[in-house]
């Protein structure tokens, strides 16, 4: 079975960054997991835009190898607390990201050797 990013991570979480931004982090288990999550062919602005229905040009991605972390921020599609806000703290929005299945390391263009 191919592993999801969530299965390669210690924790995947999401939260508000103020009332108008959502931010989420993938804390990967090890360097191999980090290589999978940090691979720009696997996870990039367009992929995040597709997962969350936000404009790709507003997506910010931070790849932090020292912590084996990939962090993603984008403007909240729905203002916090508005009629159509179903997640006031943005606490459950990490799930589509966590369920993303990266290609196996040998099938990727860069990184991921262990």
């Amino acid at each position: 079975m191919p592993e999801t990013l969530g299965e390669l991570a210690l924790e995947v979480r999401s939260k508000n960054a103020g009332p108008f931004w959502t931010t989420m982090e993938l804390f990967m288990r090890d360097e191999a997991g980090y290589a999978a999550a940090a691979d720009e062919d696997v996870l990039n602005e367009e992929v995040v835009a597709r997962l969350y229905g936000v404009p790709a040009e507003q997506v910010r991605i931070f790849r932090i190898p020292d912590l084996n972390v990939v962090k993603i921020s984008f403007p909240r599609p729905v203002p916090q607390g508005g009629l159509r806000d179903r997640d006031v703290h943005s606490g459950q929005h990490h799930v589509p990201l966590a369920l993303l299945v990266p290609p196996a390391a040998d099938a990727r263009g860069s990184g991921g050797t262990d």
Binding site: K15, N16, A17, G18, W21, T23, E25, F27, R60, F62, I64, D66, L67, V69, K71, S73
Partner: peptide, 16 residues
């Protein structure tokens, strides 16, 4: 070091 550095990620749009 990881628990402290990771807190810069919490509820921030830009961790740096």
């Amino acid at each position: 070091p990881a628990s402290v550095a990771a807190h810069m990620l919490y509820e921030t749009a830009d961790p740096f």
